[in-house]
Write a protein that binds this DNA or RNA. Structure first.
Length: 1143
DNA sequence: TGTGTCGCCCTTTTT
DNA sequence: GGGCGACACA
């Protein structure tokens, strides 16, 4: 056990390490701690608060601790309480938003807002945005969008994004309006860009292909002309903000003209003699005269000066349109006494401008602690600054884990902004990582080492055993195709779970493994591959959003509640009943309503009447039950009646389980509502929460019994023994620019100009930090899956990007190299020598490629090795191992001889004897040799498996419930849920088991007393031993003992013609003192509910004992050679043997 | 060699 | 709707 002070809440708290201790005990403020991933930053912060209270007698209520999420605030309170007892709760642990909420409530009057204000919820905000949209007149941009169901909900989405970007930077509508000035000027600015391009066409665009000294001379003159024209444009510009910004742009262009002229002069020789020949096209390209990079200019260079300027102008134009919507939105919020999340902070800041109020509020706290400071935005920074009146400020965070810039967070807050605001700031760092092995940290350090403007040059180092570990990194070179990559990953995960990867000693459970994706869509093919292999997985909320199955079930419920809801009904008819198009049209065009048509149209009018009939009957039956059943019951009934599980994937069944738990929570007990209007309201409420059903459940983010799949962003703060990172290729990780950033940034700081930031570079940095966060989630094994981008787009004759860069003047902040993150190239270049390559091991065997594996030092193609193993297995089965030569087997075949070893031992049970009576070969294989089942995927068997699992789950439930003396169906259901979760049964199995419970409770047996459950016995019959388990022994209402066996199958069993019940009774005679002669079956499967028992006379039992003896003796003599072929062969797990071939 | 056109796909998310 | 890559043309 490593002394990990991080997340774990193990009983004994570890003691802080030296650097942590120094921070905890320090009395110096303001202090900033840059704490790397897994270095225990929250631990240190909590301990520091404790230290203040314990050692310095600071009153807990004088301490303010700010975090980002409610969850984090709650956990901090909890931890403090654990350590300090009740005073721990007196520490003011807030989120950045919740403290503002409280302040505004108290000072609403001063803040001039309605004291009854509410925080706007998603639904209301969407409504307000839509109203605000009406106020926008589109002069420059068009509101058209590509589809209402896509992520950014079109016009509303872009307005919302605009507003929240501006608000997070504290920029008001009027600031924007002032900056933009008259709309006509914006049109004029667009024309200005066109004029520059036109001018460039006249001055620097050339038609000749080969440069000469004269031509270059001519072009230098052209550049001078162009520069003059730009200068003229610049001096004609007005004084508004935009125009000044454009003026700065133009300055940069003029500089570029000078610089390019210089290039043509100094490099004249190399341009003429071919080395830098394409440089003569550079001016024309940079000033926008080419639609795409001409030959010689690398395709990857997408930066042109005019392009940059144009997009800035367009951004301003769009802003000019949207600002009206911003104003209207603010207006409506105010009228409705609503504030949004950004207002909470903004209004509080306004309030704090009053020195008296500020003194009052900030005076309540002596110390201010801030967590995750790298995620704060501009207004949150100001808030903290205002509250930390005495500069007793303690800030923790990690600039290397800043991955929320795109939503307004500013990394500079924890960097130079803090340093500038607090000149006496004490910088501290934590670099000891308690989570990962050193090689993992090395790679993680690598990607961020080259970031510029980091707060400090942190380098994570492992402690304890992890520091000396040399393993921990594996790579897989991903196939081009996403599906194939998914196969590779699924294979790797499967092998990991089976413990069969050659260089991994550890065995892992599914819950130990996380798959972290950059984008949601990366998960899709991988999910499919896992599903195919039956590897359990869990998608973190959001990823499961589009579960077709859940939607279909929801539609079914809606249609039942309200048959007039034809949209839902149509959906059900299509998705579940798969009605033919023609039949659907017939139903929809009937004179009656859709639901009436479904019930009344003569079946012979349909093309596929059978499907229509099924839909009709199901719907009718369920409609009738709707009146009498509770929603929860009806839901279960629905699933059973329509057999809808059959149409769902295992994952969709899992999704359905969350829906079920939601329905259960809707109303349990006597007052359970029926499916009615109020339920529909709930449904629409759920759907309006745009993150779908999956988002509603606030379960733990991770599960322990399935592979956790989530985006990197969601994984922040979590840790897993094994982490897979797929899609590591430049084209999947490449940064892309964010909108409104140039404008937002320009408006945010008065001194800033659109020219002083290279946003693409910033995006690249963020991509690196996201990768860093992803890798530092791994404790023991990090699996990197990626490949090189198809092609850099760099031709041999191209100018190099760095050559171009060297001729771009300083005033131009962006570089031709742009934002490129050749992620796989960097990964492969920076691998530790001990990193292993799993690519061959996870290659598909049938895929044409035949990787080699090492057998006794010899390299053998995998297919050959596989054949050898199979030959060996066949030899073993047939008893002719001699036919396998020791040389090819790799070891002496004699080693397998059983001579002198223990004889195959016979252990009998009721089932084994039954198998024997069916086929003695099968008995031999299953119970003596214990052969494994044929590996071929038996599609035929899938149904029986699920019934078998259902039976097992029901039996387990019954056993546990009996042992806990539980007697109500609700309690049994609880037990069933509990076991279902532990055993990673699919949702469908749990449902079916619950159906069994329902049926059990409608039998008489459920009212009897259970004396013993799952009682194991050993019965001796003349030297032969039979073992087994008795499901249950009851005392019936007459006071007699009865042996009962639960049957979850689809068939009844005869009471007379079998040995099972007599065996149990014989066993019970030894186990119980009382006489027991009655036994029978309780049918809880689909043939039930039913129960039948009978009594056995002593004579009958004695006869059975004789029969048993005969069979036992026969079974002991059974060999592989005897077999009975028959119908049973088609279900036999050994059906690839020749004995079954005749059938 | 440069441009036109068609088809394809469409981040990251908390308060 | 729009950006981008793949191909076809002048």
């Amino acid at each position: 056990m490593s002394p990990s002070p991080s997340e774990d809440d193990s009983d004994e708290e570890p003691s802080p390490r030296i650097p942590q201790q120094r921070i905890i005990e320090s009395s110096e403020y303001p202090m900033r701690v840059l704490a790397g991933a897994g270095t225990g930053k929250t631990f240190t912060m909590v301990r520091k608060v404790e230290h203040l209270i314990d050692e310095h007698d600071v009153s807990p209520d004088r301490i303010l601790a700010l975090t980002f999420t409610n969850k984090a605030a709650a956990s901090m309170r909890e931890k403090l309480n654990e350590k300090l007892g009740a005073p721990g709760y007196d520490v003011n642990a807030y989120t950045y938003h919740s403290i503002c909420h409280d302040i505004l409530r108290e000072y609403a009057y001063h803040a001039e807002i309605d004291p009854q204000f509410d925080v706007v919820n998603n639904a209301d905000r969407t409504a307000l945005i839509h109203e605000a949209l009406d106020e926008i007149t589109y002069r420059f941009t068009s509101p058209e969008v590509y589809g209402p169901d896509s992520h950014a909900d079109g016009a509303a989405g872009s307005l919302l994004k605009f507003i929240s970007t501006m608000k997070s930077k504290g920029i008001s509508p009027s600031t924007i309006e002032t900056f933009l000035g008259d709309a006509d000027r914006l049109l004029e600015l667009e024309a200005l860009v066109d004029r520059i391009v036109d001018r460039a066409n006249e001055t620097v665009r050339v038609s000749w292909r080969a440069p000469s000294a004269d031509r270059l001379e001519e072009m230098r003159d052209g550049l001078a002309d162009l520069q003059q024209s730009i200068e003229d444009e610049r001096t004609a510009l007005g004084q508004t903000g935009v125009e000044q910004s454009v003026a700065t742009f133009l300055c940069g262009m003029e500089e570029t003209c000078t610089s390019l002229a210089e290039l043509l002069e100094t490099e004249e020789a190399s341009i003429i003699d071919d080395e830098h020949k394409p440089a003569f096209r550079l001016p024309a390209y940079l000033f926008g005269t080419y639609a795409s990079p001409p030959s010689g200019i690398p395709d990857s260079m997408s930066v042109t000066l005019t392009g940059k300027l144009r997009s800035f102008v367009e951004e301003c134009q769009e802003a000019a349109d949207l600002v009206a919507g911003y104003t209207a939105y603010e207006q409506r919020l105010h009228e409705a006494s609503l504030v949004d999340f950004a207002d909470l902070i903004g209004a509080t800041l306004d309030l704090l401008e009053d020195p008296n109020i500020r003194a009052e509020i900030a005076g309540q706290y002596d110390y201010v602690f801030c967590d995750e400071f790298q995620d704060t935005d501009a207004v949150q920074f100001e808030l903290v600054d205002q509250l930390a009146d005495d500069d007793k400020l303690f800030v923790v965070g990690d600039d290397d884990q800043a991955i929320y810039e795109w939503r307004g967070a500013a990394v500079e807050n924890i960097g130079h902004r803090l340093e500038e605001r607090y000149e006496t700031l004490i910088p501290e760092t934590l670099e000891e990582n308690f989570r990962s092995k050193q090689p993992i940290l090395d790679v993680a350090n690598n990607v961020i080492a080259q970031l510029e403007a980091r707060g400090s040059e942190k380098e994570l180092t492992a402690v304890g055993d992890a520091a000396n570990a040399s393993d921990g990194i594996a790579t897989i070179t991903a196939a081009e195709d996403d599906e194939e990559q998914a196969e590779q990953i699924a294979t790797a995960i499967g092998r990991l779970l089976a413990g069969s990867l050659s260089d991994v000693d550890e065995t892992y459970g599914a819950g130990d493994i996380a798959l972290l994706v950059r984008k949601n869509r990366h998960a899709k093919p991988i999910v499919r591959a896992l599903e195919e292999r039956g590897i359990p997985y869990q998608l973190a909320g959001g990823l499961a959003a589009d579960s077709v199955g859940v939607e279909t079930v929801l539609a079914y419920l809606k249609a039942l509640a309200n048959p007039a809801d034809e949209v839902s009904l149509n959906r059900v008819l299509t998705m579940r009943y798969r009605l033919h198009d023609v039949d659907l049209r017939l139903l929809n065009t009937a004179s009656d309503s859709l639901s009436e048509a479904l019930q009344s149209l003569p079946l012979d009018q349909f093309r596929e009447p059978e499907r229509v009939r099924r839909a009709r009957e199901d719907f009718q039956a369920l409609r009738a039950k709707r009146e009498i059943y509770s929603v929860a019951r009806l839901f279960r009934e629905l699933k059973e009646q329509t057999n809808i599980d059959w149409y769902l994937s295992p994952q969709e069944r899992r999704d359905l389980r969350t829906l079920e738990s939601l329905i259960d929570s809707f109303g349990e007990g006597a007052l359970q509502p029926a499916l009615d209007e109020s339920f529909l309201e709930l449904l629409s409420l759920m759907e309006s929460l745009d993150d779908s059903v999956a988002g509603v459940q606030d379960q733990a983010e991770t599960v322990s019994d399935a592979v956790n799949i989530m985006t990197v962003h969601k994984s922040k703060g979590l840790e897993f023994p094994v982490v897979f990172l797929p899609n590591l290729s430049a084209d999947q990780w490449e940064p892309s620019t964010r909108s409104y950033d140039t404008l937002g940034h320009t408006l945010e700081e008065t001194a800033a100009t659109p020219l002083d930031q290279d946003f693409e570079k910033r995006d690249e940095y963020e991509a690196r930090r996201i990768f860093h966060v992803a890798m530092t989630r791994a404790e023991e094994q990090l699996v990197l899956v990626g490949r090189h981008a198809d092609d850099g787009g760099v031709d041999d004759g191209d100018l190099s990007l760095s050559f171009i860069d060297s001729w771009l003047p300083e005033q131009i902040p962006w570089r031709a190299t742009g934002a490129s993150f050749p992620i796989w190239q960097e990964v492969t270049a920076g691998l530790p020598p001990t990193a292993t390559d799993w690519t061959d091991e996870v290659a598909p065997i049938d895929g044409g490629v035949d990787p080699t594996i090492s057998v006794n030092g010899e390299s053998v193609p995998q297919s050959v090795a596989r054949d050898r193993v199979l030959a060996l297995a066949r030899g073993l089965l047939n008893g002719d191992l001699d036919s396998v030569s020791p040389a090819t087997a790799g070891f002496a075949v004699e080693a397998l001889s059983t001579d002198g070893g223990p004889a195959l031992s016979h252990r009998h049970s009721y089932t084994s004897l039954e198998k024997y009576s069916q086929c003695s070969r099968r008995h031999y294989l299953d119970y003596l040799v214990r052969a494994f089942e044929d590996p071929q995927r038996g599609d035929t068997g899938s149904n029986t498996v699920s019934i078998r699992d259902t039976g097992i789950l029901f039996h387990d439930t019954a056993e546990l419930a009996a042992k806990r003396s539980l007697t109500s169906p609700e309690k049994w259901n609880d037990v069933c849920d509990e076991l279902g979760r532990q055993g990673s049964y699919s949702a469908g199995i749990v449902d079916q088991a619950k159906g069994c419970i329902d049926r059990y409770f409608s039998t008489e047996a459920s009212s009897w007393e259970i004396l013993s459950a799952e009682r194991s016995f050993t019965l001796d019959i003349d030297g032969h031993t039979i073992t087994g388990k008795i499901d249950a022994v009851y005392r019936n209402s007459a006071g007699n003992l009865v042996v009962l066996d639960y049957k979850a199958t689809t068939m009844q069993r005869s009471l007379d013609d079998n040995l099972q019940l007599p065996i149990y009774l014989l066993a019970c005679q030894q186990l119980f003192d009382e006489r027991i002669d009655e036994a029978g079956y309780v049918y809880v499967g689909s043939v039930g509910p039913d129960m039948s028992t009978r009594t056995f006379s002593d004579d009958e039992l004695a006869q059975c004992r004789q029969d048993l003896l005969t069979r036992l003796q026969a079974a002991e003599d059974s060999t592989f050679d005897d077999y009975t072929a028959g119908d049973h062969c088609q279900w036999c797990p050994h059906r690839s043997l020749s004995c079954s071939q005749t059938h």
